[in-house]
């Protein structure tokens, strides 16, 4: 039972990571690519790191000593990914807008008026 949970979590994680790659290739402009590249990799990382934590906990339960350290460090790496990934995406989106890339086929663009209203 425990092994099947690990396999299922690994499968979900890999599926979402591959989806991120396909989305990067398929979407038309920077912002939509950021949607795919940020959300899907973060979600896939949660599942893959979770399954690694379960693997380490199982080995710890079977009598290993170092594996608890492996689980703890994997959790810290997961927290690092969770904090840095959306912040980096926000920075890239703002830089893309300020360097002049407009969203392709946009229905509405409120940000265009930002500087004008202030003056």
């Amino acid at each position: 039972m425990f092994d099947e949970i690990i396999y299922i979590l690994l499968g979900i994680g890999v599926f979402f990571n591959i989806l991120a790659g396909v989305g990067l290739l398929r979407f038309p402009d920077v912002y939509t690519r950021l949607h795919a590249g940020t959300k899907c990799t973060t979600f896939g990382s949660i599942f893959i790191c979770g399954s690694v934590i379960l693997v380490a906990l199982k080995m710890w339960y079977q009598g290993g000593a170092e594996e608890s350290v492996l689980a703890l460090h994997t959790a810290i790496a997961l927290i690092a990914i969770l904090i840095t990934n959306p912040t980096g995406a926000h920075a890239i989106a703002r830089a893309a807008y300020r360097s002049g890339v407009k969203p392709a086929a946009a229905v509405v663009d409120d940000l265009k008026n930002k500087g004008r209203r202030k003056k």
Binding site: L19, F27, A36, C40, T42, F43, A106, V108, D109
Partner: peptide, 23 residues
Amino acid sequence: MAKANIDVAYRVITGKIKPGIVR
């Protein structure tokens, strides 16, 4: 987050998007 990823999966596979920037 789970809803978001299923949504993005749907958009990746079908390619139906209608983007825009709102305030």
